[in-house]
């Protein structure tokens, strides 16, 4: 019924890094073939995200997430697609440990448990330091300057007195300036976040993730409230985080063409289930129509 991607998910990372060492560039298909051949290596590589049997049931037995099993290797850039209410946001919020699943649900990020058996880990805040989150509504503090918002990414590294007094060390300030420059927002540093456009706010949110020095970036419909140009800009930045900063990226998207363009791997959700997991080319237009109409997707075709 479902496409399982497990035969190469972890090995792509090993493979990619090996090729980088050798100065080689290998096509995605090449990576997959390589990974298949050396699939035994996979056991020793840790996942960036490892979700086992994640279920989320709400009132009247309605399932927001239904038996999700998902593994994402370090360095991957994965899109989650699906209709509204298919569970994309819910899934991302579970990975960041904002909410907990039913008993029996397990979520691990870089080997650290975010939730075990549906209970949030005690050290979830320290795990979140590795996890950057970009939201549809940017979630910046509107009354603070752009620079302060970006600096908030380093809070978890600072001693209490510095956080309370708002005294950020020079090193972190420099980091913030670098990050703002990288997303092209350095000239707006002193402006209030309120006064920026949506695209600018989202780039600031990405700069915050850079200052945070996260290893995994979760993005919940990051371009849904942006105009097409800003949307492309934001996705390009995310790709840059993925390639230049070695961040694993898991991004939920509505626009399938964007997902295909930016993400080698696409996970499709429908009514809380993973109905497709594979390269974007494996999804036909009929599949997509089915996906957005909530019909069963013909996965056999996708596998071919």
């Amino acid at each position: 019924m479902f496409i399982h991607y497990e035969y190469y998910y972890t090995d792509v990372y090993t493979m990619t890094s090996k090729c980088h060492d050798l100065g080689l560039r290998v096509s995605y298909v090449g990576q997959v073939l390589f990974a298949r051949a050396f699939s035994s290596i996979g056991k020793f590589v840790m996942d960036a995200i490892h979700i086992e049997n994640l279920n989320k049931t709400v009132a009247r037995g309605r399932k927001l997430l239904d038996g999700i099993d998902l593994r994402v290797a370090p360095g991957e850039m994965v899109a989650i697609i699906g209709a509204s209410g298919s569970g994309k946001s819910t899934l991302l919020r579970h990975i960041a440990g904002f909410v907990t699943g039913d008993a029996g649900s397990n979520v691990r990020v870089y080997r650290q448990s975010v939730q075990i058996d549906g209970r949030i880990a005690r050290n979830v805040r320290s795990i979140r330091r590795d996890v950057g989150f970009v939201f549809q509504q940017f979630n910046l503090v509107g009354r603070l300057s752009l620079e302060t918002n970006v600096l908030l990414g380093c809070l978890a590294r600072l001693p209490l007195w510095r956080r309370l007094l708002g005294l950020f060390p020079e090193r972190e300030r420099a980091l913030a300036v670098t990050a703002m420059t990288e997303v092209g927002m350095a000239t707006h540093a002193a402006q209030r976040a309120d006064d920026l456009s949506g695209g600018q706010q989202q780039r600031a949110a990405i700069a915050r993730v850079l200052v945070q020095q996260a290893r995994l970036l979760l993005a919940d419909e990051p371009i849904a409230s942006l105009d097409p140009r800003s949307a492309v800009r934001v996705l390009e930045l995310m790709r840059q985080l993925n390639t230049a900063h070695d961040m694993t990226v898991l991004v939920s998207l509505h626009q399938i063409d964007m997902a295909r363009q930016f993400c080698p791997r696409i996970v499709a959700l429908s009514q809380g289930r993973i109905v497709y997991d594979g390269p974007g080319s494996g999804l036909s237009d009929d599949d997509l129509t089915a996906l957005y109409e909530g019909r069963a997707i013909s996965v056999a075709k996708a596998a071919a």
Binding site: I127, F135, L140, V141, L155
Partner: peptide, 17 residues
């Protein structure tokens, strides 16, 4: 939530959000 997502403590959420 944006601040919480960075791994900051609750006191930071109060102070900055």
């Amino acid at each position: 939530e944006g601040i919480r997502a960075t791994g900051a403590a609750q006191i930071d959420e109060i102070r900055y959000a």
